[in-house]
Design a protein around this nucleic acid. Structure first.
Lengths: 222, 222
DNA sequence: GGATTAAATTAATGTCGTTCATTTTATCCA
DNA sequence: TGGATAAAATGAACGACATTAATTTAATCC
């Protein structure tokens, strides 16, 4: 009789993996959670689900994240990075017309929200996590996003739109509108009978731009 | 030796309560949950918590609500009734000036959201419940709320504001703005340095009303 | 006034987040 | 180089909680 130890990588359930087959759990946990969020609600994703997607067991996640909230917080932050990257790309492809930049910025924001609804919900509806600054506008990435908006508003004001209005208040108001529209659409709180979501997003941005357009006093007669 | 059965109502733990000490569990569960939401996040409220506030045990709740989602759904609906009642009261106390009614409606909405943040979150961020229409605008109460807004918008248009704009799109845009502002403020997503919440709410409504004001073409010269 | 139904209770179950004890691998240092 | 120590995973266990089952008591219906 002979005893043969299996060498199959599949059947080998090592306590600690060898270096060559180690997994970058912190990074993969975030990316896999983002991937899971594309198909399922955040509330239905368990630590075991994330671990299975990563290729480990749930307790292993706790070597890298204090708890589930901390993992979701990392995903939340990754979402802001992703949003920033998309807005950066849009800004690069948009001309210098401040009005057009503001419109395209709003459209890009709504596109991101509608294409990543569960991630967006996590970004803007996360329950507060103890010990961490919950407010993205208190972080570097949040301030850069806000900077985009403020720059566009300042550009519009330089063209004569929104004369005399406080830029910070305008920024919050416009952000409220696109965030509110995204939130209502994602949560299925849309009054019936208004086309599809993409059309509604466009109509909403256009309605705001239209009102902004009305704030420019007519050129004085020569 | 004598055996004495306790008759104390306190110590009597009856399987089914006598009629005179029966509790209206469906109604009380909703009101007590609303009360709990004034002090705690919805995620931290357990069925046992609600039952304790009602004066029963958790399984008793299942005689009246299919599950926790159904209870939260009833609270969600009660929130819309409460919001409707407040808006009705405001509308009754506001004059016929359509612009003023629109402004006061927006202020009342934000006041409600800031005074009942957890309830508001439940109303506009509830996870979908299988089998029930999640969209409040598909329900009677939701349509009545939407009717308020549409009536104010129509009134403004009769005064020459927002000429030619599609009322349904305007309604969704304005609702998006106040909802977005409420959501951002409740979730602590407010850029730093903009006064307190009440002031920010007022500034946001004023900013929108200000833009609406700009949409009225100047009176034609005689 | 006894059978049936209704409405509550305590006990039990299953899921899930999290911690514990253990095992295996890597690293450090004499 | 090799033995002690640290690091990183694992399976098992715990506690909280939603939910269901079994049971008890009150109301209702001939």
């Amino acid at each position: 009789m002979s005893f043969i130890l299996s060498n199959d990588a599949e059947s080998a359930r090592m306590a600690r993996p060898r270096k060559e087959e180690a997994i970058d759990i912190p990074a993969r946990a975030v990316t896999e959670t983002v991937r899971l969020l594309a198909h399922r609600d955040v509330g239905s994703i368990t630590m075991a689900d994330v671990a299975a997607a990563v290729g480990c067991r749930a307790p292993a996640l706790y070597n890298h994240f204090r708890n589930k909230d901390a993992l979701l917080r990392a995903v939340h932050d990754a979402g802001f990075e992703k949003l920033y990257a998309e807005k950066l790309a849009v800004a690069a492809n948009t001309g210098k017309d401040a009005i057009a930049r503001l419109r395209e910025g709003g459209m890009a924001y709504l596109r991101f929200a509608l294409e990543n609804p569960a991630l967006y919900q996590l970004m803007f509806n996360a329950p507060p996590v103890a010990g961490l600054p919950d407010n993205p506008f208190a972080t570097d990435i949040g301030l850069r996003l806000l900077g985009f908006l403020r720059a566009s508003i300042a550009g519009c004001q330089a063209l004569g739109y929104l004369p005399g209005r406080e830029p910070d208040v305008v920024a919050f108001t416009l952000w409220s509108t696109v965030h509110g529209a995204a939130s209502l659409m994602i949560g299925d709180r849309v009054p019936a009978g208004i086309g599809d979501r993409t059309a509604l997003a466009t109509a909403t941005v256009d309605a705001v731009m239209d009102m902004i357009g009305a704030t420019r006093p007519p050129a004085p007669p020569p």
